[in-house]
Design a protein around this nucleic acid. Structure first.
Lengths: 297, 297
DNA sequence: TGAATAGTGTCTTTTAGACAGTATGAC
DNA sequence: GTCATACTGTCTAAAAGACACTATTCA
């Protein structure tokens, strides 16, 4: 390119002389909602264990939010993308690097970090629990996998002039052993004649650092939204699994029971059967399946 | 909170003494893909005009990418969210402030801005064209509304060890009067046994600044994805519209013809009929509808 | 009257929901 | 045989696709 600008400079001349101004810049953190699905303790050896959706949190060892629980994350460096920063943190926290990673949303509320101007570019990671070391307190950090519950608590709709406001409050409950965290997050849809806007806010929060309740709520909603029309759930499954296990994963994500026959029809093209079966259960063995890579939509 | 950290400080003491380190921070820009739908010139007064999906671009008056076309946007300031920055830029560029705004994705590729470290937090805005001044060259800037075409160009699938790579190339064409811009963007899905990853890359680019071809492609895909299961399209409609116009908007977004009867069934609950009709068309008048705000799902 | 669009009726196909039935291995 | 789960068959209901038909205005 040889175009000259107002000062008669070429692009390379311009770039050589360019110096960034000294206006303020934010720090950008990559924070991660790492989901996995684990087995609950079975009541009896004959019953199948229930599945639980879990998320990794880290107990803060310093101010601010000392003693509270936060999502794993860290600051993005100049030589990497936000995604690479997320993958790097994930590797450091969990020791795995080959997991599903999806950018969620960039949170930038003023004052969301009391120290300084920090934006959070958040990611959702999905990992098969059999590849993870699930023990808490692995690092010097106090890390733990929390069971996730996210349920509609209250619903309010109000008609306004030519539109409406709809507010949905969801209760987020996180539990790990003795530790119980809870928060209420509200999603508000404001529909006006010309435009519709959606906003999230934290109504109450007990034990979660920063605005991380909002980020986790956003992640659960994204996961629920995608589970039905994508094959995202397979990122939570081991290589071989039974169709009942796959259904349990869908159910624990959606917090809703599904009908077996309909579920099997729905996933029929997504899975491929193998010649392996489960063994030594107190009941009929189940065929093991793997993800079907051949005819992907 | 009166918890003390390792140094024996309370949270407020900690914050008072806190000083941000001098490590490098990125600039964060809010860039916007502003969509609207306009009428093409009708062949005959008796025929209905076709609809066109349009996006606002600004011709760069300085380096880098001098003379090329870029999305409107600007840097986020410390006292505002990325969304507020986007809304502010939108107001400055188009004079409207009551439009639909949705965060898309944060692009952070290293070197995406040749000057310095800049991330782009991108937004999609949807506006009713009757509220906009559609003339180009409104500001001192050279601004124009480009007709958007986004079509699948090539599809490639390759089976790899235990997984596959699927690459979809889309051609993005933007035209405004004599100006024609074109780019090819590839979406690559890499499915491995443990995880699936999706990435976007620019294959070719003629006339678009920065990585904005990728951002526009991402916006079109988001819009197409949401049009079928949300009421997002109403943000592109005037207060009163015919069902044929609504269908045309769906069709121009999806780049696909829809069946009239099925379409009307689908949107039946989303619209409310009025007692007004179109007038002076060269054919039977059409009932005007408005968006139904009463029974929102 | 005819060109062009508005709007409806109905048949078929597909998909989802519901539920009952049979099958099988460990004890 | 019994328990618990595996797996299948089939009826019904709802949604989507396809297409033809009638209705209405204006030049």
């Amino acid at each position: 390119m040889d175009m000259l600008d107002r000062d008669g400079l070429t692009e390379s001349e311009f770039l050589q002389r360019y110096s960034p101004g000294d206006y303020e810049r934010p720090s950008v953190a990559a924070d991660m909602v790492i989901f996995t699905v684990t087995d609950a303790d079975a009541d009896s050896y004959r019953k199948l264990p229930e599945k639980e959706l879990r998320v990794l949190l880290i107990r803060r060892g310093g101010h601010p939010f000392l003693g509270q629980w936060a999502l794993p994350g860290g600051f993005v460096r100049p030589d990497e993308t936000t995604e690479q920063a997320a993958a790097r943190e994930l590797q450091e926290e969990t020791g795995v690097d080959d997991v599903y990673l999806e950018q969620l949303y960039t949170f930038s509320d003023v004052g969301r970090d009391p120290r300084t101007w920090v934006m959070s570019c958040s990611y959702m990671a999905l990992a098969d629990s059999s590849q993870l070391q699930l023990q808490a307190g692995d690092d010097a950090d106090d890390a733990a996998w929390f069971k996730v519950s996210y349920r509609l608590l209250r619903e309010r709709k109000e008609l306004i002039d030519g539109g409406f406001i709809k507010a949905l409050q969801y209760e987020l409950r996180l539990s790990s052993g003795e530790v119980e965290l809870a928060a209420v997050v509200e999603r508000t849809v404001t529909a006006k004649p010309a435009s519709t806007a959606t906003s999230y806010s934290i109504i109450s929060n007990d034990g979660l650092a920063f605005d991380h309740a909002k980020i986790i709520a956003y992640a659960v909603e994204r996961l629920r939204g995608k589970v039905n029309y994508t094959d995202i759930a397979f990122n939570l499954m081991p290589k071989l699994f039974t169709l009942t296990e796959l259904q349990q994963v869908y159910e624990v994500i959606l917090d809703k029971e599904l009908l077996k026959a309909a579920f099997r029809r729905k996933v029929a093209d997504l899975v491929a059967e193998t010649d392996h079966y489960t063994e030594n259960a107190g009941h009929r063995p189940s065929r093991l399946f793997r993800r079907n890579m051949e005819d992907y939509r």
